[in-house]
């Protein structure tokens, strides 16, 4: 099987689906000749033309609002937001419009649209190129929110997202683009948009995480092996709806739980996972649920020591895991 980067895997998924389905199109800032600021759509305009890979004006509400209209009229658009940090002007179109079309029309209309955006820090992006604000969308019924962490999932989930009849928020960790490599089959496959994946089996501590943190956690988990602790690492992948059964199964199996995310903790994905475990696994727990994430400051600062302070590192995960192991 060929080895690809996370970025190449997303592009392969998009390109192959565009070849199979001429309704698929991309709309966003710099997606055309430049191929996107990270290069995800590199070469696609050449292959599919200026309409299907359309450079939008610098207007995020326009990108999503137009994508909605195109989706209503038979297209399968990808609305690319250059950085998740800049999605906020489009929130009205995503939350008030796309998410509510099916419900408010009593199933008469639906919006088969994918909104893609890179998120996450550790790239010297400072306050407005590092954020992880996916939780905003996880609160909203009518949206799917997914975050792949491996090239295999990145390809399979973008294809699944493009075939889903409802709006899918597909968030890509920008540090994963080139840093994460993995095997990606050629040709067509999909990965479900509502299933978590156990990426490391163990019976001592269940760790729930997503995005780039999956790799951070896997690294830390190995450090406990010499001491006889095996972590079960669950890549959530689907942030809305969450894979309730997978969360409950691993939490019950291990009895100790750590939830790791890059975003600050208040009212976040980790809050929801912790609530599910508190409600449905209480009698199976051997320790309080523990969470690890960013501090409650507006966003990730620029200066390297400040940025490092913000980030969840393998060292920090290891410390939390040892604390839980000793409990």
């Amino acid at each position: 099987m060929p080895t690809k980067t996370y970025l190449e895997a997303i592009r392969d998924g998009i390109r192959e689906e565009m070849q199979r389905d001429e309704r698929v199109m991309i709309l966003g800032e710099d997606v055309g000749a430049k191929g996107g600021v990270f290069g995800v759509t590199d070469g696609l305009q050449k292959e599919f033309g200026e309409w299907r890979v359309l450079d939008s004006p610098l207007a995020e509400s326009c990108i999503v609002g137009v994508a909605i209209g195109a989706a209503l009229n038979g297209m399968r658009p990808i609305a690319e937001i250059q950085f998740q940090d800049f999605i906020l002007p489009a929130v009205d179109q995503i939350v008030s419009e796309a998410a509510k079309f099916r419900y408010r029309s009593n199933n008469d209309w639906n919006v088969p649209m994918v909104v893609r955006a890179p998120f996450g820090g550790g790239v010297h992006g400072a306050l407005y190129h590092s954020q992880s604000i996916e939780a905003i969308f996880c609160h909203i019924p009518g949206l799917r929110v997914v975050v792949p962490s491996t090239p295999y999932d990145a390809k399979g989930m973008i294809v699944a997202a493009l075939r889903d009849p409802d709006p899918v928020m597909y968030f890509e960790h920008k540090r994963a683009y080139r840093a994460v490599k993995g095997e990606v089959p050629d040709g067509e496959y999909t990965v479900p948009l509502d299933r978590a994946a156990v990426v490391r089996e163990g019976a001592d501590i269940a760790v729930f995480t997503y995005g780039m943190m999956v790799h951070t956690v896997l690294n830390a988990a190995e450090r406990l092996v010499p001491d006889g602790f095996e972590c079960e690492v669950v890549d959530l992948r689907a942030l809305r709806p969450l894979d309730h059964d997978a969360i409950v199964a691993s939490a019950r199996k291990c009895g100790k739980v750590l939830i790791v995310q890059e975003a600050n903790l208040a009212v976040s994905v980790s809050s929801e996972v912790a609530a599910i475990i508190a409600q449905d696994c209480f009698e199976h727990l051997d320790a309080p649920v523990m969470r690890l994430g960013g501090p409650e400051i507006p966003a990730m600062p620029f200066s390297p020591p400040l940025e490092q302070f913000y980030l969840v590192t393998p060292d920090k995960v290891e410390t939390s895991l040892r604390e839980l192991a000793a409990y």
Binding site: A67, G69, L72, N73, M75, P77
Partner: peptide, 13 residues
Amino acid sequence: TQLLHAAGAALAA
């Protein structure tokens, strides 16, 4: 918000 939906529908057409 509806103005952009009209533009998108016209784009598809």
